[in-house]
Simulated scan of single mutants.
Amino acid sequence: MKPRAEHVSGIAHVCAKGWQQTVDGILSARYQKKNMAFWYNHDKVRTDITTGVYSHVAIVDGEVVGAIGGAKTEPERGDVFVLYVDEAYRYQGTGRRLLAALTEEQVANGASEQWVSVEKGNWRGIPFYEARGFELQGEQKKMTDTGEAHTNLNFRRVI
């Protein structure tokens, strides 16, 4: 389903918790708190829904249990910006269905390839994307504004 204003709190919660679980042990609690306050505050999530950053949500019993966002970033390229599923609903097809919905949109808009960046060491995300045909294209070393080094792995698949 397309996200709406009433999903702001649920999206913020699912994404903040999922991102925190992804970087726990990799990035400091200080950086995590700062990053979550920026990306997953309700005003930012509301704006990101309006601008299309969040493209689909999974709802169970009226609650957001998953969210995905992405866009066509080049004439033939679609990107996955964010995909998180509440831990109680993981491994039940929620993430797969969210990715399929985003992929269908991107293909309909002319994309023939899809990219995603995953934190190195993300033992949930890496196998998920590899199982769906994404192949490692390289890595990108980054430095946070708090001086912490980390690495993103860039994956691509033909769609």
Rank of each mutant, 00 (worst) to 15 (best):
T94F: 10
S117K: 12
T94P: 06
V64D: 03
S112H: 15
Y89S: 05
N154V: 14
A131N: 12
V107P: 07
T94W: 10
D145I: 08
T151S: 04
V65T: 01
I126F: 02
S112Q: 12
T73V: 11
E76W: 14
K141Q: 13
I68D: 02
G69Y: 00
R97Y: 03
A149M: 06
V60A: 13
R96M: 07
A108K: 15
F81W: 13
V85N: 08
G138H: 08
V82Q: 07
D61M: 04
A111Q: 07
A111N: 04
A58S: 07
L102T: 05
D79E: 10
A111F: 05
N109A: 13
Y89K: 11
P127K: 04
E139S: 13
N152M: 11
K120M: 09
N122H: 01
L83T: 03
I126E: 13
E105L: 08
A71V: 03
Y129P: 02
L136C: 12
Q92N: 06
P127N: 02
Q114E: 13
G70S: 02
T144E: 00
E119H: 12
N122T: 00
S117R: 15
A67R: 02
A88Q: 14
E87S: 13
E76K: 15
E63H: 14
G133A: 05
V118F: 01
R77H: 13
V65Q: 04
Q137T: 14
E148H: 06
G138Q: 10
V65M: 03
V82R: 08
W115E: 06
V107C: 07
L102S: 03
T146Q: 10
A108W: 02
G78R: 01
D79S: 05
Q114C: 09
N152L: 13
W123T: 13
E87H: 14
F134E: 04
R132C: 09
I68T: 04
E130K: 14
D145K: 05
I59T: 06
